[in-house]
Amino acid sequence: MRFQTILGYGMGLAAFLQIAAASPLDEPEVLAVASFPEENAFGHVVNGEKNNVFLAVENKSDRNITLQSIAGSIHHPETNALVKNTTALTYKVPLLGGAKIQLPYSFYSEFKPGDWRLNIWIDHTAEGEKYRVQAYDSIITVVEPEVSIFDFKMLSTYAIVIALLGAIGYYTYLSFAPQPKKRKTPAVSAPVGPVTATGAGGYQEEWIPEHHLKKPKARKTKSTTLTSGDETSGAELSATEGKRRKNKK
């Protein structure tokens, strides 16, 4: 009986130790507070831009922990319905007991301008166990970025769009516009056979057209020169006419 009693005590002690080993340890006390930078005191989240948040983490326990990641989510301000999770950043930074650290966190917003609820948390592990600590839970205001005509991004975007439209328009013009007709220039016929040069001032008659080789015939003109006989008869006629005029008088 005594042996059985001792055996029973031993089995009970082993079961107690097994239960104690299986029971989880208490969660280490870790504080995390997220805040926007000083230039964004009202907590405005700008669409299409990188929004920065800083997390101050303090390990108030005497156990060492490892900061695994920081993540967040956007919720409806009234129903708290999940809209979208933000980007999760992995750190895996060890944090000793009683130590403090500040970690940056950034995310992008593509939501309708207005009020939304933002949640940010940090995941850490301690002795193989994973824990989550809430760092931010508040209403934020999503706004559109300010538009400026001198914005480099906007100007570069306009330049790229204009260049693409110009290239498309030029390609369309070349594809559908009627092409101008090319004028045909008469081809200059080259002389057949070799060309030989003669001496100074000489030429070859086979290269000259036939109608240029024919010499024009001299035209016959009537001579208007009076002979001596003609001159004598003319003088006699003039004398006879003079006598006739005197007789009439």
Rank of each mutant, 00 (worst) to 15 (best):
L82Y: 03
A167L: 13
I140T: 01
Y105N: 02
K84V: 11
F111D: 14
I162A: 13
A159G: 07
F111I: 06
G166E: 08
I139K: 00
W116V: 06
I160G: 02
S156C: 05
Y158S: 04
T86Y: 03
G114R: 04
V83G: 02
T79G: 02
L165S: 12
G98N: 03
D115R: 08
K92N: 15
F111Y: 08
G97H: 09
I162V: 13
R117P: 03
N80I: 05
M154N: 06
S106H: 05
Y105I: 09
I120K: 01
E110R: 11
I140D: 00
I140C: 06
I140L: 11
S156K: 13
I140V: 15
Y108R: 08
K100S: 14
A81P: 04
P113G: 07
T141D: 01
G98F: 08
I101V: 08
G114C: 10
L118I: 02
V133S: 01
M154E: 09
V133Q: 13
V93F: 11
Q102M: 14
H124M: 12
I101Q: 06
L118H: 00
D151H: 07
E110M: 05
K153L: 04
F111K: 04
L103Q: 04
R132W: 01
Y105R: 03
F107W: 04
L155I: 14
I168M: 11
Y108Q: 09
I120S: 02
P104F: 10
A167H: 01
W116K: 00
A135C: 05
A159N: 06
T125G: 01
E129A: 15
Y136M: 10
L96W: 00
T87E: 13
N80M: 09
W121K: 13
I120V: 15
T79N: 07
E110L: 01
G128H: 09
T141G: 06
Q134R: 09
